[in-house]
Simulated scan of single mutants.
Amino acid sequence: MYHPYFRGKQYELITIRENAQRLAKAGFLPIIEPVRESLGGLQKALKAVCEAKGKVVVVVNPHYGDHSAGGDSISTLLADGFLDTPGVEAGVLLKNGMSLADAMGCFEAHKAHSPTLIHAGFTDGKGLADALGNELGAARHVFIDEHSSKLYRRHFKDGHRVLVKDGFERRRNRDHPDSEFFSDLHITYADDGMDGFGDFLTVGDDYSESGGPAYAIAIHLTFIDPAADDAMFIYHFKSDRMDTPTDPAGKFAEALEKLVAAVDAPGSKIYPTEAVAEFKALREKAHFPGLGYVKKLSMQHHIETMARYFA
C-alpha cells in the first residue's frame, strides 16, 4: 500500500503524530529518516503510531542530517523503547558506496526489528540478493526510483517490493506553475510489479537544512482528477508579491485567498479535507501560523486525499 517517506524535521514528525490514527486506519506505512540530533520528537511520533496500532519504518543509518555519520542513537532508541513493539520496524538505507559487508552487517544488527531494505543507490544487487538467501522473500524492499534501475530491482522480485517516486518538482516558489502533474503511481504501481508505492509528499526528496528568505509564499495542495484516469496533480497557490522577502503573513494571505477560491469553485476536484477546513479557518481569522505549520497542513491534506482514494 502507500508508504509516505518523511525526513524527520519537526513539522514532519508532528504530521505523523497528529495523523497516526488516520495512517493506521488506512493501512499506510510511513517511513521516517531522522535528520535531527534530538530524538524526542521521533519518540513521540513512534508512540503515537503504536497507540494507534499502526506501523512505521525508522531509518537507522540516515543519509542526511545530524545522524548521517552514524545512527547509533537511533538504534539505541529502537532497542530500548520499542523492542517489543511489532509496529516499529528498522529501515536499512542502502546507499551508493556502501559495501556488501556493511549492508548485511546493518541488516543482521537490526533483525529484531524486521528490517526493511531501502534501495537508494546501492549497486551490488546480485551480491545482496545472494547474501540474503531465504531471507530475501521475507523482507520488504523499498526502491527509491531515481536511485534503483529496473535491472537492479529484478534481483529482488521474490520479496515484497515498494516503489517510491518523488512527485514534487523542487523550484523557487515564484517559478512553480499554477498546477501540474504529480503522480500516477497510486494507480500503476502493480503494473511495475510492485506490492506498494510511496512518495515524498508535498515536500520532495531534495533535502536542505533550511531555505533562504521566501520572496514568494506558496501553498501546495494535491488532488486526484477523475477526468484524467484518477492521476494526481498538484496546485501551487502563490502570493501575488514576489519581489522582496518582507511581509510573509501578508503574502500567505494572498496565497490563501487563491486556495479558498479554488476549493469553493464549482466542480472543484480538491477533496475537502480537515486540512482544507483548517486553511479556511486561518483565512477567517486572518492568521499566519508560520511556514512550518503551512507545510504540515499541506502534507496532512495529501495523506487525507490518499486515504480517501483507497477507502
Rank of each mutant, 00 (worst) to 15 (best):
H3Y: 15
P4V: 07
R7P: 01
K9R: 14
K9V: 15
K9W: 06
Q10V: 10
T15F: 12
T15E: 02
I16L: 14
E18R: 14
N19C: 13
L23P: 07
L23V: 06
A26T: 13
A26H: 08
F28M: 12
F28P: 04
P30K: 09
I31A: 04
P34N: 08
S38W: 00
S38D: 15
L42A: 05
A45H: 04
A48P: 03
G54E: 09
N61Y: 03
Y64H: 14
H67S: 11
D80V: 05
V88H: 01
E89N: 13
E89P: 00
A90F: 07
A90D: 05
G91T: 12
L94G: 04
G97P: 10
S99M: 05
L100Y: 02
D102I: 11
A103Y: 03
M104S: 02
M104E: 10
G105S: 09
C106P: 00
E108V: 15
A109E: 06
K126M: 11
V142A: 06
H147A: 13
L151G: 06
R154M: 11
R154P: 00
H155S: 14
K157P: 00
R161G: 03
V162F: 11
D166Q: 11
R170E: 07
N173M: 08
R174H: 09
P177I: 01
E180R: 10
F181Q: 04
F181V: 04
F182E: 08
D184W: 03
L185M: 11
L185P: 00
I187W: 02
I187Y: 03
D191I: 07
G193P: 06
F197W: 15
F200C: 06
L201I: 09
T202C: 09
G204F: 11
D205H: 13
D206H: 14
Y207S: 03
G212H: 11
I217K: 09
A218L: 11
T222L: 04
D229E: 14
A231E: 14
F233M: 11
I234P: 14
Y235F: 14
F237K: 00
S239F: 02
T244D: 13
T244Y: 07
T244V: 10
D247I: 10
G250W: 07
G250K: 07
K251H: 08
K251W: 08
A253M: 12
A255T: 02
E257V: 15
L259M: 10
V260F: 03
A261T: 08
D264H: 07
I270G: 01
Y271M: 10
P272V: 03
A275W: 06
V276S: 09
E278M: 09
A281C: 01
K285Q: 15
L291C: 00
V294M: 12
L297A: 07
M299G: 02
Q300P: 00
Q300S: 13
H301D: 05
H302I: 11
I303G: 05
M306K: 04
M306N: 01
R308A: 10
Y309D: 01
